[in-house]
Design a protein around this nucleic acid. Structure first.
Lengths: 120, 120
DNA sequence: GCTGTCGTCAACCAGATGGTTGACAACAAT
DNA sequence: ATTGTTGTCAACCATCTGGTTGACGACAGC
């Protein structure tokens, strides 16, 4: 809708209902009606949310009779993570803490347990 | 201001001017007037942007006489990256592409070790 | 003391956003 | 062909957002 692709992605995820929709779609595809159930909002509102997510490239919709199954486009997340990592690392480096950050990231990937409070 | 912390962070970064401010602050601290120069907006507008970034926990401001040096709080980025990675990995896993994703991430870290300039 | 600079606060405005309700298109089922 | 289900479109409304201008507070220098 408005602005550049990166702005659309960030704006799309700035709403808790839309983040929740993304969370549910990460489990598996779903229809609009199915997605609308848990929230206290109308189906039209959810349809709008899905349009925002679709414009951001985070969701795609196909056809199945009168249903519109929604599918999460996970690749779009990289647009954000690339931007974030770039400036986070740059800032961390200014404090000479780059090594600690990289170590924490490696730890995060190799093991799935919660992170240690090494950052400070 | 509005909503939960995660929404505030995403909303703060949904604006290109604010992302640009973050990019500049990743190079080093700066005053409000100094940050306002490159954009065709008033100092008051930039002051508002900084308030949004501060409310999101992405920026902190100290005092130096009548100046208010702005400082990037890089740790707050983790709030986002954690959320993003969680659902991205979950979605990728559904396609059996988890191995490829993890490989790409490892590659990203090893290249970062030889830092700056290459990441342009 | 005045004067100038840096920044915030307050009021205002146009446009976007998130929600509602009502109408309707597309398809399935009877 | 009529009925029911699924979802979108359109209009409307309240609130938020990003910008403006004007006034003011805090501080440095004359």
């Amino acid at each position: 809708m408005t602005g550049d692709p990166l702005s659309r992605v960030f704006a799309a995820l700035a709403d808790p209902t839309r983040r929740d929709i993304v969370a549910r779609l990460s489990i598996g595809d779903a229809t609009v009606g199915h997605l609308a159930e848990p929230y206290g909002v109308s189906v039209q509102a959810v349809s709008k949310h899905l349009k925002v997510l679709e414009d951001a490239g985070l969701v795609s919709r196909s056809r199945d009779a009168q249903r519109r199954p929604c599918h999460l486009e996970a690749e779009t997340f990289e647009l954000m993570t690339k931007w974030i990592e770039r400036y986070r690392l740059q800032a961390e480096e200014r404090f000479g803490r780059l090594d600690a950050v990289l170590a924490a990231m490696d730890d995060q990937h190799t093991t799935h347990h919660h992170h240690q409070g090494a950052a400070s």
